[in-house]
């Protein structure tokens, strides 16, 4: 196994929390992502990472817990997208864009304050690209708790949520309020995105939200199967990506490691490509 796992991988103090938190975040993102893809809300899912970043920057300015900042901003941002866009579904694109633009501007301002008050560098990069290797152990319990709460909420509203995603009219006829469902889901989405944006960065947050879910939806017929498949694919891509990033330090001539985000995205793309090829091949035969 030495050729696959370079020395020190298991004993390294940052690898352990990275593997655990990465897996937790990937599982939540994948499960939420299936609903995101079905509802066509990839854009909102991505926009919330940038919105959450503004909260993270604000939290580091006032010295609050970054996860709290991410969560709060994500939920406020998601709520305003939903409130502005729910009236007319096709306006959601614009509402998402405007909230995203404003949040990005706010992030720029807050980061400016952070950098001028603390003279700390690296804040931009860690917020945007994140790195599971820099996550401290203290985040693990809170992160796991948020992840569990998100999953439990998603699981308990799954039936009315799916019905209102597939047919708002039908859902309304059955007594489900599509707007309420939209709001509940956007809170779930915001929590999941905030968590993943903090732990693994904005890029990976979107990649893990959309990639494993769309791969699984191409292969699986049922939604339960798709959710399980997405979770497996998501966890696999994070673990393999972390391993590849760690190993790349030893493999490259210059001893410079490839960022975790690039490695994980690489695995995700392979999964999506494989799922696409597989579903085309199956359709060609059927």
């Amino acid at each position: 196994m030495h050729w696959l796992v370079e020395p020190g991988f298991w004993s390294n103090p940052v690898v352990g929390p990275a593997l655990v938190l990465g897996a937790v975040v990937a599982a939540v993102s994948a499960a939420v992502g299936v609903v995101v893809v079905v509802r066509g809300q990839s854009f909102a899912g991505h926009a919330l990472t940038d919105v959450a970043m503004a909260g993270g920057a604000g939290a580091s300015l006032v010295g609050a817990s970054p996860l709290l900042g991410f969560l709060l901003a994500g939920i406020v941002g998601g709520g305003s997208i939903e409130a502005a866009g729910a009236e007319r579904v096709r306006d959601r694109d614009v509402a998402t864009g405007v909230v995203l633009g404003a949040a990005a501007g706010l992030t720029a301002l807050l980061l400016y304050f952070v950098s001028s008050s603390t003279s700390a560098t690296g804040s931009t990069q860690s917020v945007l690209f994140g790195s599971v290797f820099t996550v401290s152990r203290s985040v693990v319990p809170l992160g796991v708790a948020v992840a569990a709460a998100t999953l439990v909420t998603l699981f308990s509203v799954r039936r009315p949520l799916l019905l209102s995603s597939l047919s708002p009219e039908l859902a309304a006829a059955r007594g489900v309020r599509p707007r309420v469902m939209g709001l509940v889901f956007v809170v779930v989405l915001a929590a999941s995105v905030a968590l993943s944006a903090l732990v693994i960065g904005a890029i990976l947050s979107t990649a893990l939200l959309v990639g494993p879910a769309s791969a699984a939806l191409r292969v699986s017929r049922g939604l339960v199967g798709a959710t399980v498949g997405a979770i497996v694919a998501g966890v696999a891509s994070v673990e393999l990506g972390i391993l590849a990033s760690y190993d790349s330090f030893y493999w490259s001539a210059a001893h410079r490691s490839v960022p975790v985000s690039a490695c994980v995205v690489g695995v995700v793309l392979v999964e999506v490509a494989a799922a696409t090829v597989w579903s085309r091949w199956r359709r060609g035969r059927g």
């Binding site: 990839s42 991505h46 890029i203 769309s214």
Partner: peptide
Amino acid sequence: VVTALALVTMLA
């Protein structure tokens, strides 16, 4: 979905 994947690919 394709746009999201293209986006993360370019960012990564």
